[in-house]
Design a protein around this nucleic acid. Sequence first.
DNA 1: TTATCATATGAGCATTTGTTCATATGTTTG
DNA 2: CAAACATATGAACAAATGCTCATATGATAA
Lengths: 99, 99
Amino acid sequence: MNKNCEKYENELYDLAELFKIFGDSTRIKMLFVLCESEVCVADLAAALDMTQSAISHQLKILKQSKLVKTRREGKSIIYSIADDHVRSIIQIGMEHIEE
Amino acid sequence: MNKNCEKYENELYDLAELFKIFGDSTRIKMLFVLCESEVCVADLAAALDMTQSAISHQLKILKQSKLVKTRREGKSIIYSIADDHVRSIIQIGMEHIEE
DNA sequence: TTATCATATGAGCATTTGTTCATATGTTTG
DNA sequence: CAAACATATGAACAAATGCTCATATGATAA
């Protein structure tokens, strides 16, 4: 009997946690927008037509997961995609959708 | 302002739904086991040390999402990965984990 | 045909999750 | 410095999710 999923228990748990982040409409839209250009919180909220608070809560999750990074610019905080893996994951997911 | 996430509303929704499936420990373990070999329900339950019922409920979700397929063999139903996209998605996710 | 075996399913429950509302925090700039 | 502005945060609530338990379904094989 295959017990590899016991062996890779931790990796698989982390993997599930990663996909969980992508598995929400709001967050995937946010990542999608961020894939095209860096934006501040207010602009993200406007782009998705959601409250600043809701967006901010989700950004916290994205940042904790190291999927996005930030920098300050004047009064705003600019969010951007942390690394190209994020783009790859969205890309390959899209390919599956358009089967 | 970027309104592409409005334009791709449906695709992004589907994409989130797809990742949602991968975003659960139990299901990702099941998919991982199935990536290595086809197995019947009882064996999957044994491999993950979970009840047959719990596994069966999740298999239903995986099947509805067309991530796995089935065939009968004697008294058992054998489950297997539906197509290579599933492997690709897990693969690329793993690469991100091991950054 | 009928008993048995493997799998599927429905209801119930506890947990997790995402949003809202109110408000706090902390820079900036006048 | 103080007012204004952009973002962050906490509590509360509703909705979604995953498991369990009991039982149904349906194919196999004796």
